[in-house]
């Protein structure tokens, strides 16, 4: 009986022939899809907080996914998360720069001022929710809104450090990799962000 047990164990330990390159590529593609599915909504919310616009946030996340898939899919999956957030942060920064340039350029052009009352509205925004929000959900939403306002008031690097560390749970090294700076800088930015947020939100929370 022990002999059978040993043989059985040996059979279990033998993994068979090495997978074909096509199979390995398929496995990695599946792993990539799983990673993106796990991270996409969180990335969207992070981009939305930074950009204050859902469509811009969607565009940046979409672009980030494509860039990661095209350029870094062959890298080990452990490297994907910091790479993904680095691409995302670069995309957010580029969009903010373009907005800033556009805003400066538009101030020089004569034209009718935009009337906020006449802006085209998304019809979906006027549709009432199917289920009314419970009081505690409403409070949660309001608290998140306050947090977003405070985060948007932070300097960009502090906001990045706080969101990557707190929201996404990256450690200091991965955050430094995603932000393209030293670990010391991450600690400094993060500490200042927490201090400022605590001062602003302490009484409300």
């Amino acid at each position: 009986m022990p002999r059978f047990a040993t043989l059985s164990h040996a059979c279990m330990a033998w993994d068979g022939p090495a997978p074909a390159p096509e199979d390995a590529a398929l496995d990695q593609t599946r792993e990539l899809e799983k990673f993106l599915a796990e991270v996409e909504r969180r990335a969207f919310r992070i981009a939305q907080v930074a950009l204050r616009d859902a469509d811009d946030a969607l565009d940046v996340v979409q672009d980030t996914m494509l860039k990661l898939a095209r350029n870094y899919a062959a890298r080990p999956s452990a490297e994907w998360r910091p790479l993904f957030y680095r691409i995302l942060e670069n995309g957010i920064r580029d969009l903010q720069r373009r907005r800033s340039v556009r805003k400066r350029f538009m101030t020089w052009l004569p034209g009718p001022k935009e009337d906020p009352d006449n802006e085209a509205q998304d019809p979906l925004e006027n549709v009432a929710d199917a289920a009314p929000q419970a009081p505690d959900q409403l409070m949660q939403a309001q608290a998140m809104q306050q947090l977003e306002i405070s985060l948007q008031a932070l300097p960009a690097r502090q906001r990045q450090a706080f969101m990557l560390r707190t929201f996404e749970g990256l450690d200091v090294a991965a955050t430094a990799s995603a932000m393209g700076c030293s670990e010391g800088s991450v600690k400094t930015h993060y500490s200042r962000a927490v201090h400022t947020l605590r001062e602003q939100l302490g009484e409300v929370w």
Partner: peptide, 22 residues
């Protein structure tokens, strides 16, 4: 709406990666 767009973006990215690897 956002979830749907994210799903489509993900599929496009995975397809791009699969083509490149293939």
């Amino acid at each position: 709406r956002v979830r749907s767009r994210l799903t489509r973006a993900r599929h496009a990215a995975v397809e791009a990666a699969a083509k490149r690897k293939g």
